[in-house]
Design a protein around this nucleic acid. Sequence first.
DNA 1: ACAGGCATGTAAGTCGTTACATGATTAG
DNA 2: CTAATCATGTAACGACTTACATGCCTGT
Lengths: 188, 188
Amino acid sequence: MSRVVRNSLPVSLRHGILGLLASRPLSGYDLTREFDLTLGHVWSAGHSQIYPELGRLAAEGLIEPFDSGPRGRKRYAATKAGRAEVLRWLREDDPGRELRVESLLQGFFYWMLEPAEQIALIARERARHASKLAGYEALATGDIDWMANAEQHAQRIMLEAGIRYERGLVEWADWAAAEVGRGAEVRS
Amino acid sequence: MSRVVRNSLPVSLRHGILGLLASRPLSGYDLTREFDLTLGHVWSAGHSQIYPELGRLAAEGLIEPFDSGPRGRKRYAATKAGRAEVLRWLREDDPGRELRVESLLQGFFYWMLEPAEQIALIARERARHASKLAGYEALATGDIDWMANAEQHAQRIMLEAGIRYERGLVEWADWAAAEVGRGAEVRS
DNA sequence: ACAGGCATGTAAGTCGTTACATGATTAG
DNA sequence: CTAATCATGTAACGACTTACATGCCTGT
């Protein structure tokens, strides 16, 4: 009997899926789209990760088949145990895992380049964040009725996190470009 | 001949290591500490990932042993090819990989709980970010001479990214808590 | 008819975490 | 002398990405 106790803590993917299925039935394809569009700015997942996980969740009794549709479409819904697990996760699992922002990692090494080139790279980074910010803001001020229900409202609240985070980084990029100029001057 | 071309793009870890070794010789232990303390707020890595990667980088001629010290300490330095690779990475590889913030993922599902509990969880999240922010600000205003050289200055610039990002999330948490209250009122 | 999007899955390989394992040096 | 910290590594497992593979509907 080498039965291992199983996932002690991390595994965000399964809880992301479970959380979405707790409110309404969705197919693997739907979930993929949801991760891409909605949860995407804090956690991403591709379909090749989602389909196997649906299988595991079903095997564990946390979700169950709900119905079928055209083109082999299969929707799943959270079971009672699945919904309970989402609540347990929210209440008990304090994730706290580190942040990962690959593009900012490069910033630590910009100093190896000439100031002009550094400033150009910072501008590229600014553009990346400004573009995301614009997208989020357009969504926020679009024609969605964010107060329609609690779930919709939660999405609006999380969208605001993205807006503030991206706005912070756009402002940072402007500050950083000026700062690189200042540094070059001081040391010249 | 099934010689695969190798890593086309991602692989941030190797470039993080290479970037650090491009400025000065460091041991695996030093690198682990550096990832933990300095690069940590945008990219993390444990020693069990670093030691094998040092072996691979050495095998590829991007780094080489520099010297040895007590307790088996081995320092490596970037070779000419290694330094060139860092510059190529900065100039050509536009990372753009998605952001990952596990703790914010939970926010999408808070609506399943009572408003009072939601607000408590948001407070926990606020505390997490406020504490990080305080740490970063203390560092920034501490007694480090950030203008001492270009590398030091780059670290100050990246520290500012962390400060602005965490500040944005602290402010977000305050906004979110108020917003949850407002939502509960509207729908009651 | 055919293009585009819907829809599901598998395989191979890399990345990342946790746990295991060991030992040397230094400060108190 | 003994605890803390320095220091390096491996193993097992789980997470994630990219590529492969297939086929069905619907709108034009």
